[in-house]
């Protein structure tokens, strides 16, 4: 198995693979650590580094296709009747190279001259979906990390009398005391975290107002150097995709290069987050279709979250969703190892 794994890894790397990996890390470390662009540079780094496992998926599709025309399926059939050595070694080879990417991406941060990336502000604008007398409805745009808070700046100038405190309630009966002159920080409840919808009510007739441009969602800040954890989570996102590629190629008998594209689409779907203005562009139906399909999959968007909003979604994957996603990978790997009967 070791011989097969290393030889497949060697084939995956080819002549330029190692240089591509080093180049990716170099570009990632140089392009994403420009502090003049802003503070939140972990997200861009994660985005650049994710190019490596994506490239690995496509490269694997190409190599598997090449192997199909080099007579490997025949030899596998003859020499490995149980049919698990080749697919397992291919999976291990991809895992090995993806892990090498994670290690290099972590080590790159310790290189001299590289500025250590820092987390974002943890603050994100929130849409006020609707408001009525003494109440507001907020749309947080999807699942929200546990421990997040809704930050509201209230206008007390219209309040009758000289009241300095008011009790606000949500739809489930939770309440919080708002103090005049202070930002209200509403800790999101489980239901609100899951649905991304919040309704808050002020006592009727109090004329409490809200400064709409100042509504913010505060998500928990990454503590210390969390990059290795984030990179490993990214790896967990890609592992099932690698297994699915093998299952499609071997069990599904799909042309490997085509299977790589199918897996890329599937992964994109799992990570899909609609652009804010897609509906305005007349493509709302497309976004809705993608979202509908995405809802059939475990919510693993948080594993692959990157870019300037990475903190907003990185903590949104629950343990249950993660286990379901990995189970999907295990199932795919079992299918890849299952030899289909001769036709």
């Amino acid at each position: 198995m070791i011989t097969l794994t290393f030889s497949f890894a060697r084939e995956l790397l080819g002549r330029w693979g190692l240089w591509v990996l080093l180049g990716t890390i170099l570009v990632a470390s140089q392009a994403s650590f420009d502090t003049t662009l802003g503070d939140a540079n972990i997200g861009p780094y994660l985005a650049y580094v994710s190019l490596w496992p994506i490239a690995l998926l496509f490269r694997c599709g190409w190599v598997l296709r090449k192997r199909q025309v080099e007579g490997w399926p025949l030899e596998e059939q003859l020499r490995d009747p149980k049919g698990y050595r080749a697919p397992l070694s291919e999976f291990l080879a991809m895992l090995l190279l993806a892990l090498a990417g994670v290690i290099l991406a972590s080590v790159a941060l310790w290189m001299p001259g590289v500025q250590s990336p820092i987390g974002g502000t943890g603050l994100f604008p929130v849409t006020l979906q609707g408001h009525h007398d003494g109440g507001w409805e907020f749309d947080l745009d999807g699942r929200t990390p546990a421990g997040s808070m809704l930050m509201l700046t209230l206008d007390w100038s219209q309040i009758e009398g000289s009241r300095k405190q008011l009790v606000l309630r949500n739809a489930d009966g939770g309440e919080i005391t708002a103090n005049a002159g202070q930002i209200l920080r509403w800790p999101l409840q489980d239901q609100e975290l899951a649905s991304g919808k919040v309704r808050l009510y002020a006592p009727e007739g109090t004329k409490l107002r809200l400064f709409k441009p100042l509504i913010r969602l505060e998500v928990p800040q990454p503590s210390g150097d969390r990059i290795l954890v984030l990179l490993l989570r990214q790896l967990l996102f890609f592992l099932p995709l690698m297994a699915i590629l093998l299952a499609l190629t071997r069990f599904g008998r799909v042309r490997a290069s085509l299977a790589a594209w199918a897996v890329f689409f599937f992964g994109s779907l799992a990570a899909y987050h609609p652009p804010v203005r897609l509906a305005d562009a007349g493509l709302g139906w497309l976004a809705k279709t993608f979202l509908l399909l995405k809802q059939m999959l475990p919510n693993v968007e948080g594993l692959i979250s990157s870019g300037y909003r990475f903190e907003r979604y990185s903590g949104t994957t629950t343990s249950g969703a993660l286990i379901a996603w990995l189970a999907l990978g295990v199932l795919a790997l079992l299918l890849a190892c299952k030899r289909r009967a001769a036709r």
Binding site: T3, S7, E70, G71, L74, E75, D80, R85
Partner: peptide, 18 residues
């Protein structure tokens, strides 16, 4: 059909490992 870029011995070792 053969993997034309491999050497005979490297290819055969893989087959034996398989």
């Amino acid at each position: 059909e053969f993997p034309l870029h491999h050497s005979c011995s490297f290819y055969f070792r893989q087959l034996l490992a398989l």
